[in-house]
Amino acid sequence: MKTIHTDTVIEAVKQMCIEANLQLSPDMKAVIAKAKQEEDSTLGKQILGQLCENLEIAAKEQIPICQDTGMTIVFVRFGQDVHIEGGGLEDAIQEGVRQGYRDGYLRKSVVRDPLIRENTGDNTPAIIHYEVIPGDTMEILIVPKGFGSENMSRIFMLKPADGIEGVKAAVLQTVQEAGPNACPPMVVGIGLGGDFEKCAILAKKALTRSLDEGSPLPHIRKLEEDLLKEINASGIGPGGLGGKTTALAVNIETFPTHIAGMPLAVNICCHVNRHSKRVF
């Protein structure tokens, strides 16, 4: 049994919200720098150069990389032998988000009611997904998600007969429709299998997987590589103004599904693919 105080959770969540918005992970930075070297469109190369410069300014001057500092998505993996002291875990996470967005000068982008649209003023509530795991550790992953790209994400309830070609066609259609709206170069997170909501959560989680690792499943890893090539043959390019760098990576997560279906979710993220993790 391990005891974790809510004050520890609040402080960690606050710091993660701030750091995720100021600095990308090393794998994200590396893949953007590599794309800049390899881009063969003049304007595309210039745009990728601006993105690299933007990352340097953000880190040096502590200005958020993008003004859309996102709605905060939180993945919690909670060990069943962990005891939380000091109050509710959910309240502590929301308080950490509140403090992070206030003290980090991040934008408050959440409205309380989808139709009335009054800003909550502190970027809460965050959307929290819990998973109970064995053992006495807790892991919190913070994902500030921008909505320019979120708006271009799609779910397809494919049929088993659609097969791998159906998956590819749906992903390519999504990327094509996203075009310049999703701030390419993008990262494409895919959830394949499960049911209607499971595939969507998998797609979001796929965005947080290190770009240095492919899928551990050989046929899925090949699908990731093939899709990346096909997306980059679209010519959409950086900023949607032509070039070979439309996507920086394709990450796919899978789950068992029903004999009658093949749910597919495509969660698009821009090049500001942010996440920060702590293990307690």
Partner: peptide
């Protein structure tokens, strides 16, 4: 006009 999306720190200067 398009400004470069996701370059908010740079554009703020």
């Amino acid at each position: 006009f398009a400004a470069v999306g996701g370059a908010g720190a740079l554009l703020s200067k």
